[in-house]
Simulated assay, not measured.
Amino acid sequence: MEQLIVIIALVILIFCVVLMVLFKSSKEQTKFQVKAIYEGVNELGQVVMKVLFTFSVGKLSTSNKEMLAHIKWSEGWKPVRYSIKENGAYREDSLLSSDLNESFLTFAIDDTNAVDKNGAGEGYVMFTLDCPSIASKSTVAMIIDIHTNKVAYQLSDSTSWDNEFVVSN
């Protein structure tokens, strides 16, 4: 009888350890990071910020999926172009059209070329400061929607920077 109880306890313990390992490894497979990089001033005298994003979709990279990137930014900034790394290199920049009244846009990510064999990818969005008399901090938030097999996943992150620093440099 004691042996049966020990065997059952051991089986439950092994099952719990396996579940914890699987949960931890699956959690580490999907990642998303957004960061802002000061790029200086363009030929029009506008401050330029590059918002770089990197993502990893883990096991989702093997299934058919649709990926959309949604980006929201602080007032005064204007997105002008973006690029997604495809097949290991950045493709030609795509122009973005937006006016100062807009603060949100969406663009598609071609998962066949933009996601490598490990499920990782990256891209960037370039912003210019069109209205220098804005708040002291700016923020960019991004969400990547992944739709696969009738299931939707979202990865999100945001970044912010001090406007006084970028304007004075």
Rank of each mutant, 00 (worst) to 15 (best):
A69F: 06
A114H: 05
K35E: 01
S25C: 12
G58C: 07
S83F: 06
L13A: 15
W77Q: 02
E92N: 15
Q3C: 12
D157T: 09
T106Y: 07
S160H: 07
I12H: 03
Y38N: 07
C131A: 10
P132I: 03
P79N: 08
F55C: 08
A152Y: 12
D116H: 02
I143L: 15
F127V: 11
M126I: 15
S61I: 00
T30L: 15
K137Q: 12
F53R: 02
D116M: 01
L95V: 03
R81F: 07
T139S: 12
S133Y: 11
V18Q: 00
V21T: 07
M49V: 14
Q3H: 04
K85P: 03
V115Q: 00
S168T: 09
S158E: 07
G40I: 04
V140S: 07
S25N: 13
R91H: 09
I7N: 09
S26F: 14
I7R: 11
V51R: 02
W73T: 15
V167M: 03
D110C: 02
V34F: 06
V6R: 15
F15P: 06
T62R: 00
S98P: 00
M142E: 08
V167H: 01
T139L: 07
V151N: 14
P132C: 02
N113G: 03
L95G: 09
V6Y: 15
V47G: 01
A69T: 06
V21L: 04
K50G: 09
K85L: 12
V140I: 14
M126G: 01
E102A: 12
T139K: 11
V115M: 02
V48E: 07
F32Q: 04
V6F: 13
K59D: 05
I5H: 10
K78N: 08
N118Q: 12
G40V: 09
V57M: 11
F23N: 08
A9Y: 13
I143S: 14
D116L: 05
V41P: 00
V57W: 11
I144M: 13
G40S: 11
M1P: 02
V80W: 03
A36S: 08
F53H: 08
M67L: 08
S98L: 11
E86Q: 06
I134T: 09
D111M: 01
R91L: 10
V151Q: 14
E164R: 06
S158V: 03
K50A: 01
T159N: 10
M1S: 10
M126N: 13
K85G: 05
F32C: 06
E92C: 03
E66G: 05
K24T: 13
V115W: 00
S56M: 06
V6H: 13
W73N: 07
I8T: 11
L129S: 01
F55M: 03
N64Y: 00
V115Y: 00
S56W: 06
D157M: 10
I12G: 13
M142H: 09
S133A: 09
N163L: 05
K24Y: 10
D157Y: 08
S61D: 03
S83N: 05
K117I: 12
L155H: 10
S94H: 13
N87L: 15
A9W: 12
R91K: 14
P132T: 01
Q3L: 15
C16R: 01
S136D: 10
G76N: 03
N163G: 04
K50D: 02
N42F: 04
L22D: 08
W73Y: 14
S61W: 00
M49F: 07
A108C: 04
M126T: 05
I12E: 10
L4F: 06
V34T: 14
I71R: 08
